[in-house]
Write a protein that binds this DNA or RNA. Structure first.
Length: 440
DNA sequence: ATAGGGTTAG
């Protein structure tokens, strides 16, 4: 980047806004500081500080950030809540414990609700649900951001019923109007659980009754939620009423179709979207490739996979490779599936190997399974992937490798014991009084 | 006007 020595303060601000890397941001900021030296920290100065802070949380640059922190403290800019909240936000992305420490140092005059909400989000990301709830309960004048942060925390901890109850408490016991972000949060929670359509309908109804302004995020979430809950009719209705459909709307719709095995409709939608000049993104390709997998459309899948990087210049991710392995594996083309794994440019994960192994079992091919068996056994197998042990042991039995069968059976037993103990200890340790009825 | 919560996948 050329040194913009000649730039005026306003132009430096613009350059700072575009700065992508920490060093260029700090460099521009120091130039700006020289420009601003005669004047005291003004609104102009702290705007610059905010812009310089953004790139500092993008990379892992804790030392740089601490350095900048010291400067902000010296120049008294940290007294501005805007600056303090941004710095806290940057810290919380790099190191939650440092963020916590900084929060304790913030003087009361600076610590407004925005600062507190940033800290709440940090606690939600890095602590357990109980600590987050304790922090939330301690906030005196909660606003809609405090509530939606806590709401998202329930869902990210997999506590769907509690999340929904919390949402109801928010709408019934406070005067706060849910905005589109809180609705997107609750809809995403419903969607990830594949919850029954009534939940989506009641959230949708709330949005209509309370005239929450429709925007593309809300529309996308509604389509996504209805689609995943299996109400493709409702999803289509929302989709049809979107004035200018973005790639996110299309993708949510295609995904819903793919998920409920309406593969030909998913593919038709995909082609229609392209025909209307909308550029598919990585998610769109994941959705359409999974549709091909479900329907056993090998050639279509191959075609779309090629299209993705040849026409749209998108680098395949592990999800796309996973879809391709699935497409070949389900069709019994085990060599092709194995070939994808061997040539892919990402490290294959347990899902991908499992997909191949399941097909090897179904099509009785031990030779192709051998490498996968060893790879999977070398991986960390989480409780939710526990079923893979049975698959592995069945495959070894199929190959006549009885020593390995015994070895896996032993691993399985250890795994089961650990699993049982683990889940019971979590239940016992869980705080009880943490229900929404406590919310005033 | 400027800071904080959400973003689709197997």
């Amino acid at each position: 980047m050329p040194l913009p020595q000649h730039l005026a303060a306003g132009e430096l601000l613009d350059a700072l806004r575009g700065a992508a890397c920490p060093s260029s941001a700090l460099h521009l900021y120091s130039l700006l500081r020289i420009r601003l030296r005669p004047t005291d920290p003004s609104s102009f100065a702290w705007r610059a500080a905010l812009l310089a802070l953004k790139p500092l949380s993008a990379a892992s640059c804790l030392p740089l950030l601490s350095h900048f922190h010291a400067h902000l403290l010296r120049s008294n800019l940290l007294a501005y809540p805007h600056v303090a909240s941004s710095l806290l936000h940057s810290y919380s992305l790099l190191s939650p414990s440092v963020a916590h420490h900084m929060f304790d140092q913030i003087p009361p005059a600076t610590c407004n609700l925005v600062v507190v909400n940033v800290m709440l989000a940090s606690v939600c990301r890095s602590s357990d649900l109980a600590s987050a709830r304790l922090f939330f309960d301690g906030i005196p004048d909660k606003d809609v951001v405090s509530w939606s942060t806590m709401l998202g925390c329930y869902f990210s901890h997999g506590r769907l019923a509690d999340g929904l109850a919390f949402f109801r408490a928010m709408t019934f016991t406070t005067q706060l109007a849910a905005d589109y972000v809180s609705l997107v949060t609750v809809l995403t929670g419903c969607a990830s659980a594949g919850l029954l359509p009534p939940f989506c309908r009641s959230v949708h109804g709330y949005a209509v009754r309370r005239c929450v302004p429709a925007n593309r995020h809300l529309g996308t979430s509604l389509i996504d939620c209805y689609g995943k809950a299996g109400r493709l009719d409702y999803a289509s209705r929302v989709f049809a009423r979107v004035p200018s459909r973005s790639v996110m709307h299309w993708t949510a719709m295609i995904c819903g179709m793919a998920m409920h095995l309406r593969s030909d409709e998913a593919i038709r939608l995909f082609e229609k979207m392209r025909w209307q000049g909308v550029q598919p993104n990585k998610m769109t390709f994941t959705a359409v490739l999974s549709a091909c997998g479900h329907a056993g459309l090998v050639d279509q899948g191959r075609k779309f996979f090629k299209l993705m990087f040849e026409k749209y210049d998108l680098e395949p991710t592990i999800h796309h490779y996973g879809c391709m392995v699935d497409i070949f594996a389900k069709a019994g083309q085990l060599e092709d599936a194995y070939d994808v794994i061997k040539t892919m440019r990402v490290e294959p994960n347990i899902i991908i190997w499992t997909s191949l192994l399941a097909a090897c079992k179904r099509f009785k091919n031990f030779d192709i399974a051998v490498e996968g068996l060893e790879k999977v056994l070398a991986m960390e197998i989480s409780d939710e992937n526990g079923g893979v042990y049975t698959l592995i042991s069945d495959l070894y039995a199929m190959g006549g490798r009885w020593d390995d069968v015994m070895k896996v059976r032993r691993l399985m037993e250890e795994h089961n014991v650990r699993k049982k103990r683990g889940s019971s200890s979590i239940k016992a340790g869980e705080p009880r009084g943490l229900t929404v009825s406590k919310v005033s």
